[in-house]
Design a binder for these strands. Structure first.
Lengths: 251, 251
DNA sequence: ATACTAAATTTGTATATACATTTACCAGAT
DNA sequence: ATCTGGTAAATGTATATACAAATTTAGTAT
């Protein structure tokens, strides 16, 4: 089965063998895979070599392993959510529209000094204090999104004493009489950091969508800066874009 | 330095030690880090333990290692490109606007049978043949984007004989008299597959933006389905979104 | 039956060793 | 100077072994 004369290392061959088994559905979600010692015997290699192959599968989120229990094919994505970016309706509405139960909890509220990445978009000068609110959002009690919100301290200091359980947008609108208008959003893909990995319940860092936005009111004043990390295994984003009349070239 | 009585494994401690060194800028981009044997001596552990720590840094794209040469702090992102998704101006225009030189090459053109993921958005029924065009796009001769385009075979079969070097949009417009109107785009974060990892020149799979779109003409007929993988270390995306008048809740 | 204990199982960490493969470097011959 | 070949150095692969830690299983005493 595992051929030493091939140019590929043994552990890569074992890794590929598992991918084939999964492709052929001989291994399905939740299945326990043979133990390290059994695999070592099966492929006639040492346990350490098997472990290298399995480790690669763990890193890619294909299997999960638990000391004392064994290794299992990871639960696959059962439900997918799609967020529309054309009009921001808010996490709660997006999740409700999918028929699931949204929730969030506040992890932290504190006053910090803004660095350039926060101060520039908020157009701060002089007073660099900002209110930092770290929240985790859930869909059906499963963490979906970790969000850090930054607000200029002076105009928003009343927020510190407020009940945040209804979310920030009603506070902006009702307590501060702001008319929210648009958001400038930039996103990219990142690996989850250790806090995110833990919060999302991943076994190892996984690719996530990192979305930063600046929220503006109707007279183009920046209200908040948000850094969001969405788990990408269950959440997708949608944008409907128009095309200009004339396009010069590819794609 | 490395304390066995701590609850953290030694290799994790070594991994964190490197992160601190990088944070404190005692290690900078391009620096060679000490050899495995030197580190093993320094931390009083075996070479294999050092390797476990270094492997973790490789997986996260923090260092690169070359057999016979050594280990080096990975080159950091020097230039960032931002693609706007509000109006699609095309890869070429986006890159040119950033002051760089765009290019692409055609990796493959072939006729294949569409599966549901292709046939559904193209609204195919009966004839499931599609033209599959695999292209790699470059910015300043560096691969930026791998794109697979799917076209219904019958109406577009003339494409097979055409010169694709000017891109697809001029062909749609001039050779097929189509008026391109809008695109429905969905994206998420994925790890690069082996082809993408190789093409992008990564040492290990890295997080990428996976963007699928369906391009429509002015009478809402689907023209093409595209699957794109963008390297996320240098490319970001921007969307400016509006907010509806009334928002019920968070974020 | 229930509760506790002990053993077996399984994965995690760490060491030690050997050899392979790639690269860099230097000495010596041309 | 230039090319060649050998050697050293560095990382890659693989084996073998030991013990740790977590979980399950089985058994035993109450």
């Amino acid at each position: 089965m595992i051929q030493p004369q091939k140019r590929q290392p043994k552990y890569v061959q074992i890794y590929h063998w598992f991918q084939e088994q999964l492709q052929a559905e001989k291994l399905k979600t939740g299945d326990q895979i043979p133990t390290e010692t059994a695999l070592a015997r099966q492929f006639n290699v040492t346990r350490m070599t098997v472990r290298k192959a399995l480790h690669r599968l763990v890193v890619e989120g294909i299997i999960t392993r638990t000391r004392g229990k064994g290794s299992f094919v990871a639960a696959e994505t059962n439900k997918n959510f799609i967020f529309s970016l054309n009009t921001i309706t808010g996490f709660f509405n997006d999740i409700r529209r999918s028929g699931s139960q949204p929730a969030f909890k506040v992890n932290r509220v504190e006053i910090i000094q803004a660095d350039a990445k926060i101060a520039d978009p908020l157009q701060l000068s002089g007073d660099l204090r900002v209110i930092y609110i770290l929240r985790t959002f859930f869909a059906d009690e499963e963490p979906a999104l970790i969000q850090g919100t930054y607000l200029p301290y002076e105009p928003f200091k009343r927020v510190m004493e407020m009940d945040l359980s209804k979310g920030m947008y009603p506070i902006y609108r009702e307590n501060f009489n702001l008319r929210l208008h648009h958001a400038d959003q930039t996103f990219t893909a990142v690996m989850s950091n250790s806090f995110e990995t833990r919060t999302f319940g991943f076994d190892s860092p996984q690719p996530c969508i990192f979305l930063e936005w600046v929220l503006y009111d109707d007279i183009n004043r920046p209200i908040e800066v948000c850094y969001c990390t969405y788990r990408s295994d269950k959440y997708k984003f949608n944008v409907v874009s128009s095309l200009p009349v004339q396009l010069s070239m590819a794609p």
